[in-house]
Design a protein around this nucleic acid. Structure first.
Length: 482
RNA sequence: GGCGAGUUGGCGGAGUGGUUACGCAGCGGAUUGCAAAUCCGUGUAUAUCGGUUCGAUUCCGAUACUCGCCUCCA
């Protein structure tokens, strides 16, 4: 099956041809680990996780290498560590910095796992690759593409004529835009930092240019080279990274003599209720915040998949509700046709666990996840258990099911339901059943209205009543009936 | 100021040079003690103005509006 991907380099969709089909290689810029991941951080993770899953489906589970870094050289990490030290925390500053990075990485992996993201095959930390970064900088200096001055190593932008081609900018225009900071020691205002000196309260490494630390951009170039080689298939990240980060990566790596990435992919940004998420607007929240509110990770993921990755995505409460209903409806259909964790295992063992060709085709067209979801609605109309296999397969393939035990939980909104609630509800249902049996419709409806007011949805099928918690569940209404 | 992306029905959201997917909501029907749930059916859209074309929502240009990046904020 052929995949088409939009390559930022060419500004169009092109057929994806791997360098080596038995080892497809992808690099994605990971987080700076100074705090909990906010919702915007989740977008590239989900987008490229979906691509990772698609690539693994097509080329084989063991034939895709996905590297995503952790940037653990950063002023904010240092600031946190320093604050902790001043507050009396034990250990050296280096220890405290490492501690902060470790805990943030752990949070990140937990939160992303909750969103159904597989762990990348490689997760390098910048601090483990300083040697390689220094080597690369030395190489660039030797080749005349970089220079040392006042403890800094700077990339000589004018030495690379292609500079700006990835992000579609010209050096002259940018300078004309007058937003370039002029620093006296730079040969040219566009030149960017490869290495900079560290003060005593900052972490540092010894280098030919003195005690210091690497610039941000060189990290990714060095790690990608070490883990994926000089030429690899896909480089991904948010489109905010296109300039300067990716432009600089490409410049460094190309000048160092490497082909670097064949396909550049950029996801669009996230907004919240139509506005950019920012602390000043007060609409800033983390993935963990949502999970704590009881929004399932799979629901969050589905909201992301509802919008194509190259379009701005709006997180809204309405979409959260819609995604929840969508996912729940699919599980209801599967349960109705006898699906359980056991039947899924059986299907997989028997070789009947197959994908829908049309859906895979849609998904392969530049990761058209909304199109794939539309196809799933059609697949969900199947009237037989075997006919629903492609739907179940798609749910798992898109990371919307991490554990098929979801099929066992019938009315599963357990977290927000105190123990006494089902007891009260069952009693009211029983009373209503008695009223119905004696054709006391007034009383029966009064009880149902009461349950509805509490957000409990009552459903009569073939004479017996069942119930589900609706989105507006409010236990307070039932409190007095305990 | 420079560069880029976008504008599809009430809402969300795809594809496509030739009757506009799909979901939600709405409406009609079946079913129901009445509802709900379910099932069946159904109306409504390609920002504006030009151009190319037999034909444009799709290609090109302009206008308006929105958003992003240029400021280590993903």
């Amino acid at each position: 099956m052929a995949i088409k991907l939009y390559n930022t380099k060419f500004r169009k969709r092109v057929e994806f041809i791997p360098i080596n089909e038995s080892d497809v290689r992808m690099y994605v810029c990971g987080p700076t680990v100074y705090d909990r991941a906010h919702l915007g951080n989740a977008r590239p993770v989900i987008v490229f996780d979906t691509l990772f899953r698609l690539l693994r489906y097509i080329y084989g589970l063991d034939h895709v290498t996905y590297a995503r870094n952790f940037t653990d050289v950063d002023d904010k990490i240092n600031a946190t560590a320093l604050a902790r030290q001043q507050a009396g925390a034990l250990g050296t500053l280096e220890d405290l910095i490492a501690e902060r990075s470790d805990e943030t990485i752990k949070w990140y992996l937990e939160d992303m796992a909750a969103l159904g993201a597989l762990e990348p095959t490689k997760m390098p930390r910048a601090t483990q690759y300083v040697t390689q970064m220094i080597e690369m900088i030395e190489d660039l200096i030797a080749k005349g593409n970089a220079y040392e001055i006042e403890g800094h190593a700077l990339f000589r932008v004018r030495s690379y004529p292609e500079y700006g081609s990835l992000s579609g900018r010209s050096v002259d225009d940018m300078i004309a835009g007058a937003r370039v900071e002029v620093v006296p020691y730079k040969e040219d205002p566009m030149d960017f930092v490869l290495w900079k000196p560290s003060s005593d309260d900052q972490p540092g490494w010894n280098s030919p240019w003195g005690h210091g630390r690497p610039g941000w951009h060189i990290e990714c170039s060095a790690m990608a080279l070490d883990l994926l080689g000089g030429e690899f298939d896909i480089h991904g990240g948010g489109n905010d990274l296109m300039f300067p980060h990716h432009e600089n990566e490409a410049a460094q790596s190309t000048c160092a003599g490497h082909e670097f990435a064949n396909v550049w992919m950029h996801n669009e940004m996230l907004q919240v209720e139509g506005k950019k998420m920012s602390k000043s607007l007060g609409n800033f929240f983390t993935v963990r915040d949502l999970l704590k509110q009881g929004v399932a990770g799979e629901v969050i993921r589905l909201v992301f998949l509802m919008t194509h990755y190259r379009k701005p995505m709006d997180w809204t409460d309405a979409k959260r509700v819609e995604a929840h209903k969508m996912l729940n409806d699919w599980f209801v259909v599967l349960r109705k046709h006898g699906y359980s964790p056991k039947t899924v295992d059986k299907l997989k063992a028997s070789g009947d666990w197959v994908a829908d060709i049309e859906l895979m085709g849609v998904l392969s067209n530049d990761l058209n996840t909304p199109g794939a979801l539309a196809r799933m609605h059609v697949l969900a109309k199947a009237r037989t258990a075997s006919g629903l296999v492609p739907l179940a397969h798609a749910l798992e393939m898109l990371g919307l099911v991490s554990d098929w035990n979801v099929l066992d939980a019938s009315s599963s909104q357990d977290d927000r339901m105190p123990d006494w609630v089902p007891v009260v509800i069952d009693r009211l249902i029983a009373e209503r059943g008695a009223a119905r049996a004696s054709k006391d419709w007034g009383e029966a409806d009064r009880l149902r209205d009461l349950l509805n007011t509490a957000g409990v949805q009552v459903t009569d099928v073939a004479g017996t009543a069942s119930w589900l918690l609706g989105s507006g569940f409010n236990p307070v209404v039932l409190e007095g009936l305990k």
